[in-house]
Write a protein that binds this DNA or RNA. Sequence first.
DNA 1: TCCCCTCCTGTACCGGCGGTACAGTTTTGA
DNA 2: TCAAAACTGTACCGCCGGTACAGGAGGGGA
Lengths: 209, 209
Amino acid sequence: MRKGEETRTRILDVAEAAVLQKGFGGTSIEELIAETGITKSGFFYHFRDKNELAKALLNRYIENDERIYDEIFSRARDLVDDPLQSFLLGLKLLSELLSDLPNGHPGCLVATVCYYERLFDREIQETNRNAVLAWRRRFGRMLRDIMEVYPPREPVNIDQLADMVSSVLEGGIVLSKTLKEPNTLAEQVLMLRTFVKMLFLPAAEMPRA
Amino acid sequence: MRKGEETRTRILDVAEAAVLQKGFGGTSIEELIAETGITKSGFFYHFRDKNELAKALLNRYIENDERIYDEIFSRARDLVDDPLQSFLLGLKLLSELLSDLPNGHPGCLVATVCYYERLFDREIQETNRNAVLAWRRRFGRMLRDIMEVYPPREPVNIDQLADMVSSVLEGGIVLSKTLKEPNTLAEQVLMLRTFVKMLFLPAAEMPRA
DNA sequence: TCCCCTCCTGTACCGGCGGTACAGTTTTGA
DNA sequence: TCAAAACTGTACCGCCGGTACAGGAGGGGA
């Protein structure tokens, strides 16, 4: 009962790394069982088929992703009271976390699934959609708190601004991976931070350099 | 000789649509030949293997992409002289072009290849890398022209700012596709436009509302 | 102690797919 | 008209996803 979970986790670990490098179609079950040291029957004992594996993989990825954001932004809230300063600190912490990844960001499963839509069932696509909507709600909540204190310099739609955070993260990952420049992603997050800062911080409180 | 090119193009058209929906691994050669009405031998007459197909697909996609940016931003330069206003107009035109796509953006092959890195040879990865670097140079050139006239409100690295354009486009595509909200991508481009505008336009020339 | 449930292994098999080989046929442009 | 270009047809290989099913190790509870 404990043992089963452990094997399952090991399969998911190996599968996640492989899928992020080669996509779902490029990852064979045979290579997964070779690397985990399990038999084919063993694999199918844990996952009915590849779709089931994808589902488990995506759910685990999203949960972990949410946990990381929870930690970062709740830590930022603990350190400073002001909603704007707290959000800016959160982005700073996020960028530091990303630039500390030894081999750069491995890739986002949400993006992988997005580029594989037709291969999976509706449930997976719905899960993926909800993950992005959760990001929108999360960042939207924080931005609305900021808006109550700081009037934006330009009129902006909060949901669209919240989506901008997700966009820059997803796009930054693609750029970082493609360029093989691990730091690009962290830099993009800091650039977004500059945007948010400029949008909400009154000119008087904004020193040059 | 003319006929050959035509068939080749038809294969590439079908393949591009399929790959953007299901990824390379999820697209079978058999389905491509079924849809183009060609035989398997016919297919392999045009492309030695799947890697060769991917190479042709990516090169064609990048060329087309560059052509579109050339058109949009040269048209923007024709319409207004000021480098900042011209760039802002270009982003507006781009966002309009994107929101006019009937079924939303079909996806970016550069991102697809990026999430498939280990499946292709070095040449394809290098092509992909160069495509992103070309974007950086393109937007960087325009931003440098702006910088010569308008001092930025905040100190920013031009290459990183140029990358921000690519990030928002790539990320916006992922969001748009995942959410099945075709308009999200165009909105993200406009949000980026707001950022650029705020960064370079002097406060005096920036009316509220 | 026995038994049952979880967690696997082993073996055999199927059909689809990427890819090869190669001979033959039609189409087309100079 | 003739050669090259652009295919078709057929046969075959090995890998992979997936199915089916029998059986076994090991631990925990009655």
